[in-house]
Computed example of a mutant assay.
Amino acid sequence: MPPRRAVTGRSQEPRQRFAEELRLLRAQKGDSLRQLGEILGWDSSLFGKMEKAQTLGSPEVVQALDQHYGTRGLLLTLWELAAGDPTQFKERYRRYMSLEAEAVSMWHYAVSVLPGLLQAEGYARNLLSAGGVRGEDLTRQVEARIGRRTLLDGEDAPRFRSILSEAVLRTPLKDAGQWRRQLEQLVADANRPNVTVHVLPFSSGLHGLDSTAVMFLRLLDGRAVTYTENAHRGELIEDSGAVERLQRAYDAMRDLALSPAESQKFVKQLLEEVPCDPST
């Protein structure tokens, strides 16, 4: 069978096609992002991120857009195709990703690797390669991961706090140049007004999250949800009692971490230890 011929000239990649349709419908209706947010009751930044294909949003948001634009389920159909696209994030991440796009603040603990939002391209590529990702799939996943960093950009970006176990920073990349660039980016990220970075030194001893990488999201409605992860699986926790227990463990661990200023100094000292590229 010959390959399908493009008729409309528009993207045949599901996620991009969904974003294109959102931009076109809003332009036809003459709404600004702010007006759209006021009418539908979600933060306007969410719709901006959806139109840039940075997030898909939740089914509830898409159903509201379908009703607003009178598209009779078309947008929800496109959303389902985009959410099922194998080139995008695995199933267990999709619900989390939709919530992350709506978060007003996020706080995180890293056990062994940097969180995706703080990863430079070289670090992301090495990490995904170590997990067995290859070829075009590797390129797509690196682009998707680096694209998520835009969540931290702009005046309406959520506040993000990350506590890094010292083990994260004591596990360098084999390429000294790439490792230097990662540490430099970490220093730059820590200087963003909406980003706070702590280092949890080995000397802090044992704590309640020793083996658990965890991300907390504070949502627009005031709820908090948690995503826990290890090398083999992730779990989204929305039960308020379970989230509260994890929050208490996080708060106790945060009390053991270095201050942001001390943490900056720690990372800069590591940076000084990385061999310089002789070609620079």
Rank of each mutant, 00 (worst) to 15 (best):
L118R: 07
A83Y: 02
V104R: 15
V104H: 12
A101D: 03
L74F: 03
M97Q: 15
L99A: 13
G73F: 09
E100H: 10
K90F: 05
E91Y: 00
V111P: 09
Q88V: 04
V104K: 15
P115F: 00
R92E: 11
A101L: 02
A110S: 15
Y93W: 12
A101Q: 03
Y93M: 10
P86F: 12
E91C: 00
A83R: 03
R92H: 11
A103V: 09
F89A: 13
Q119H: 05
V113D: 14
E102A: 13
G84L: 14
E91T: 04
L74Y: 03
L75N: 00
Y96S: 08
L81C: 12
L114I: 14
P86L: 13
A103I: 07
L99K: 10
L75C: 00
Q88I: 03
F89W: 14
Y109F: 13
L99H: 10
A101Y: 03
E102M: 09
R92Q: 10
E80N: 11
E100Y: 08
T87I: 00
E102P: 01
F89I: 10
L114D: 09
V113R: 14
L99M: 15
P115D: 06
R72V: 00
V104F: 11
K90N: 06
P115S: 05
Y96Q: 08
L118V: 07
L114A: 15
A101F: 04
L81W: 09
K90G: 10
V104W: 09
H108A: 05
G116L: 02
P115W: 02
S98G: 15
L76H: 04
G73R: 08
H108T: 08
L99T: 11
W79S: 02
L118E: 09
S112L: 15
R94N: 09
E102T: 06
L99R: 10
L78G: 01
V113P: 08
A110L: 11
V104D: 11
S98H: 13
P86K: 13
E80W: 07
D85F: 08
A82F: 00
W107H: 07
A83N: 07
E102V: 01
L118K: 07
G73A: 10
E91S: 05
